[in-house]
Design a protein around this nucleic acid. Structure first.
Lengths: 214, 214
DNA sequence: AAACATTTGTCCGTATGTATA
DNA sequence: ATATACATACGGACAAATGTT
């Protein structure tokens, strides 16, 4: 009897990881509303675990800025102001821009083609008005560049900031404009040309324009 | 009986905070060596607490990149390669540079004077070869700018990255050159002139030069 | 292969602290 | 102001997982 070869990842998820991922998702998609009070006993019950994994997850979520813990008092989901995006995008733009510059030192022809392919998918989702799927593919595009740039610090910081962007998407209907398609093409072109200055400029614009589009 | 007015901060430090700060300090100053295996029971004993606060602290330290936890196996202090500073400084430089630009929109005359004063202290510590104290005052200089820029995302990210820089100071004897004094003066000048482009450039240089000085 | 030793992961009870009546 | 109710912070014990002999 042939055993299925693609047992992919028997990633045993610890109760803590499960709790973390679930609570984070609930906060991002709005199931848990901004300002909502979080009771660890309740959450533990809802997740079928004890309070410990919930508590540990909440602490990690606090570091990421999704909840605020008032010691001895309570824990609540952080508020989300529309204007917070003004604080969020500039550092994200700066790091993505830097990442693109750094990626130029490592990028291969195959990887450039991969970026082309991702941007194709992105374009199709935009034209079919599938906004959320488009956002996820946009994230993928930028994550590939970050992986290529091989900088673990940037990678983890950007992952965190992008989670916040995703939350704004749900709450304040951020949308990605068609113009991003062309900007992505330009980014790929300048990376192919090994033009650090230009790729940095356009990458920054690509992110900051989201602000102007409000 | 007059009660001392400077009861400074009756900051109730929770056991978790105490554990976190102590362990982080031990890692940064090298008391806990890179690669060292951490046993939470031992640490708890050393800190006079139970495993819970230690465990929670270790999880936060993992997010910050100071330890690595292998589920079910063990926890160890992350290695520190001299070359890691090459990954660390570029994003830090980019964010500090951005922060200086943003600060220009808010900075007051008083705050500019405050920066002058800090740089004076910095210069004295450099000339008296007090390297670690100089590093701390340098951090203070940049933290003031970050506070002025009023961007919570940048603030928390930079705090984390600076903790790593401090660790490199202890392990690989990073030193701050006298040239930093003049660069700080230039930064203050350009902020006074509200010249965003120039302050961004010199701020970035101020951080990246640390790399070149090796 | 199986049982052991060690360390982490989880559970839950209790103490402590905070807010409300 | 005191007491009461409630949620968290912490502690200690048990369970699960890993590596070893």
């Amino acid at each position: 009897m042939p055993i299925p070869a693609n047992h992919s990842k028997p990633v045993r998820q610890s109760a803590k990881e499960k709790a973390f991922n679930q609570i984070q998702e609930w906060i991002i998609d709005g199931t848990l509303q901004p300002g909502e009070k979080l009771n660890d006993t309740e959450l533990a019950h809802a997740l079928g675990s004890s309070r410990t994994p919930v508590r540990e997850s909440l602490q990690l979520l606090e570091v990421q800025g999704f909840v605020k813990m008032y010691p001895g008092k309570g824990t609540e989901v952080t508020e989300i102001q529309r204007e917070a995006i003004n604080d969020l995008l500039p550092p994200l733009a700066a790091l993505q821009s830097l990442s693109a510059e750094l990626a130029i030192d490592h990028i291969t022809a195959d990887q450039l083609k991969q970026l082309d392919a991702i941007n194709e998918r992105f374009a199709q989702l935009i034209s079919s008005n599938n906004a959320y799927a488009a956002l996820k593919v946009d994230e993928e595009f930028h994550q590939v560049i970050i992986d290529i740039s091989k900088n673990a610090y940037i990678k983890s910081i950007v992952e965190n900031l992008q989670a916040h962007v995703r939350r704004h998407f749900f709450h304040n209907s951020i949308i990605l404009a068609e113009r991003s398609i062309e900007e992505h093409k330009a980014i790929i072109k300048f990376m192919r040309d090994r033009n650090k200055d230009k790729v940095a400029v356009i990458m920054k614009e690509n992110w900051l324009r989201t602000l102007e589009d409000f």
